[in-house]
Lab assay of single mutants.
Amino acid sequence: GTEIELESKNGQREHYTATSEDEARKIIEKAVRRGIKRIELRGASEQLIRDMQEIAKQIGLQYRTDGSL
């Protein structure tokens, strides 16, 4: 699965493990709508990382991946 670590603007951290790319995408989209400061992805697919970079650029988000592409 993909591990997703979120940090909201007030510094609250949340951790999710998505079993599918679809689920990961839903978690990320929800977080973005809620207003999130930072997202870290571990074990994400190349496609998901590309999507994440696109989203991050659009809304000026900090993100990090573990680089295991």
Rank of each mutant, 00 (worst) to 15 (best):
residue 1 G to W: 14
residue 1 G to K: 14
residue 2 T to I: 12
residue 2 T to L: 13
residue 3 E to S: 11
residue 3 E to L: 11
residue 4 I to A: 00
residue 5 E to V: 14
residue 5 E to C: 14
residue 6 L to M: 08
residue 6 L to G: 01
residue 6 L to P: 01
residue 7 E to V: 13
residue 8 S to Q: 09
residue 8 S to M: 15
residue 8 S to Y: 15
residue 9 K to N: 12
residue 9 K to M: 13
residue 9 K to R: 11
residue 9 K to A: 11
residue 9 K to T: 13
residue 9 K to I: 14
residue 10 N to M: 09
residue 10 N to V: 04
residue 10 N to W: 10
residue 10 N to R: 06
residue 10 N to E: 11
residue 11 G to N: 04
residue 11 G to V: 01
residue 12 Q to F: 14
residue 13 R to K: 12
residue 14 E to T: 09
residue 15 H to Q: 09
residue 16 Y to L: 06
residue 16 Y to K: 02
residue 16 Y to M: 04
residue 16 Y to Q: 02
residue 17 T to Q: 08
residue 17 T to R: 10
residue 17 T to N: 07
residue 17 T to C: 13
residue 17 T to G: 03
residue 18 A to S: 10
residue 18 A to F: 15
residue 18 A to H: 08
residue 19 T to I: 10
residue 19 T to L: 14
residue 19 T to M: 12
residue 20 S to A: 04
residue 20 S to C: 04
residue 20 S to E: 03
residue 21 E to V: 07
residue 22 D to P: 06
residue 23 E to R: 02
residue 23 E to I: 05
residue 24 A to V: 09
residue 24 A to Q: 00
residue 24 A to D: 00
residue 24 A to H: 00
residue 24 A to C: 06
residue 26 K to E: 12
residue 26 K to G: 09
residue 27 I to P: 00
residue 28 I to K: 00
residue 28 I to C: 03
residue 28 I to E: 00
residue 29 E to F: 11
residue 29 E to I: 07
residue 29 E to L: 12
residue 30 K to Y: 12
residue 30 K to L: 13
residue 31 A to S: 05
residue 31 A to W: 06
residue 32 V to A: 06
residue 32 V to E: 01
residue 33 R to F: 07
residue 34 R to S: 08
residue 34 R to N: 13
residue 34 R to K: 11
residue 36 I to D: 06
residue 36 I to R: 03
residue 37 K to F: 09
residue 38 R to Y: 11
residue 38 R to S: 09
residue 39 I to P: 00
residue 39 I to R: 00
residue 40 E to M: 13
residue 40 E to T: 14
residue 41 L to N: 00
residue 42 R to T: 10
residue 42 R to M: 06
residue 43 G to K: 04
residue 43 G to L: 03
residue 44 A to Y: 04
residue 44 A to N: 02
residue 45 S to F: 03
residue 45 S to N: 09
residue 45 S to E: 01
residue 46 E to T: 08
residue 46 E to R: 07
residue 46 E to A: 12
residue 46 E to F: 04
residue 48 L to C: 04
residue 48 L to Y: 01
residue 48 L to W: 02
residue 48 L to M: 06
residue 49 I to H: 09
residue 49 I to D: 05
residue 49 I to T: 05
residue 50 R to A: 08
residue 51 D to M: 14
residue 51 D to P: 00
residue 51 D to Q: 08
residue 52 M to Q: 00
residue 52 M to S: 02
residue 53 Q to M: 11
residue 53 Q to D: 15
residue 55 I to G: 00
residue 55 I to M: 10
residue 55 I to K: 03
residue 56 A to I: 09
residue 57 K to S: 10
residue 57 K to M: 09
residue 57 K to L: 12
residue 58 Q to Y: 06
residue 58 Q to M: 09
residue 60 G to M: 05
residue 60 G to R: 06
residue 60 G to H: 06
residue 61 L to V: 08
residue 61 L to M: 06
residue 61 L to K: 04
residue 61 L to P: 03
residue 62 Q to M: 11
residue 62 Q to C: 15
residue 63 Y to S: 05
residue 63 Y to R: 02
residue 63 Y to F: 15
residue 64 R to C: 15
residue 65 T to Q: 14
residue 65 T to A: 14
residue 66 D to F: 03
residue 66 D to H: 06
residue 67 G to F: 04
residue 68 S to W: 14
residue 69 L to T: 07
